[in-house]
């Protein structure tokens, strides 16, 4: 049985769904950030498989930029976690109501 585009897309959707479930149902900020990483990676996988099946190298450039965004997102997110943890002494989303006043 050959591997088709659908295989890659289904895998990408499954990974994205797992990441989305992690973002929704967990309350540890670290796990939420990691789930966002996973969602970005699965989106990159989908873009790359489309690029492979259409023989367009542009998709690779897009994935390259996505990777830069992944790195930036992790750095900024973790810095925010450190700052919030200094103030609130917690990494759980239930305790972080800074913007609700």
């Amino acid at each position: 049985m050959i591997i088709t585009l659908q295989h890659y897309l289904v895998l990408s959707v499954i990974l994205f769904a797992i990441g989305a479930i992690g973002v929704i149902s967990r309350r540890n900020i670290f796990i939420i950030l990691m789930s966002i990483e996973l969602m970005l990676a699965s989106a990159a996988l989908a873009v790359l498989s489309f690029s492979r099946w259409n023989l367009l190298p542009d998709g690779k450039a897009l994935v390259f930029f996505v990777m830069a965004v992944i790195a930036v997102e992790a750095a900024i997110g973790l810095a925010i976690i450190i700052v919030v943890h200094r103030r609130k002494k917690s990494v759980l989303t239930d305790d972080l109501g800074l913007l609700r006043g």
């Binding site: 890659y8 670290f30 950030l33 990691m34 990483e37 990676a41 990159a44 996988l45 790359l48 498989s49 690029s51 492979r52 690779k60 994935v63 390259f64 990777m67 992944i70 790195a71 992790a74 750095a75 973790l78």
Partner: peptide, 23 residues
């Protein structure tokens, strides 16, 4: 496998390397 070896190496270095260490 999707014939993007350079991006595979980048993924290893950035997502599986640098970001994980930062976490």
């Amino acid at each position: 496998l999707l014939s993007a070896p350079f991006l595979a190496v980048l993924q290893l270095m950035i997502s599986a390397g640098a970001v994980i260490v930062l976490f």
